[in-house]
Simulated assay, not measured.
Amino acid sequence: MEDSWATTPAVRKSMQGNRSRDTKPELAVRRAIHARGLRYFVNSRPIPQLRRTADLVFPRIKIAVFVDGCFWHGCPVHRTSPKANADFWLGKVEGNIRRDLDTTRQLRSAGWTVLRYWSHEDPEAVADDVQHRVERLRGKDKAAAGVADHHFDHHRLSSGAVRHRPTP
């Protein structure tokens, strides 16, 4: 165990069990969106040359949806400080946040609408928001949908219903 990030074999086994896709919150959001009749790609690269995958992708209308885990992506509501190996884990989470912001920037630069939600958010509220965005971009008020998305920071969502705060 001496060259591992884990402090004990039990911690290592527990952390290796964490999924990078098909998490319970992600599955709940996918089920809710699917129940609304929307179809999408799962765990797909919006831009093939960019080594970043979105949880749900609507390629024809260029919407990428991410369901970010509270611990791994630094949720401001549920973020906790690890007790063991704190420097490693804080660096890891900070790196994830930087990568998330870079991913959002690169996708937006390529004309994509990026929707980010925290895993603690209500799947039905998330699905309502995604459905609304998809419908807007499929033809109803397409220009307004694109403009609005570029003025909001979807990475910093509130803890209640799906809300988007204007970026500074």
Rank of each mutant, 00 (worst) to 15 (best):
T7E: 15
G17D: 09
N18I: 13
N18Q: 10
R21F: 08
R21H: 11
P25E: 04
R30P: 01
R31M: 05
A35K: 11
A35M: 05
R45A: 05
P48N: 10
Q49T: 15
R51G: 03
T53N: 12
A54F: 04
L56H: 02
R60Y: 06
I61D: 03
I63D: 00
A64H: 01
V65S: 00
F66W: 03
W72Q: 03
P76E: 08
P82S: 11
F88T: 07
W89P: 02
L90D: 13
V93I: 15
E94I: 11
I97N: 07
R98Q: 12
L107S: 06
W112A: 02
L115Q: 01
L115A: 02
R116N: 12
Y117F: 15
E121G: 03
D122K: 05
P123R: 00
P123H: 01
E124N: 12
A125G: 10
V126G: 00
D128Y: 01
D129L: 01
E135F: 02
E135G: 04
R136L: 07
G139L: 01
D141S: 14
A143K: 15
A143W: 08
A145M: 05
V147D: 14
D153E: 14
H155N: 13
G160A: 13
A161D: 15
V162C: 03
R163L: 15
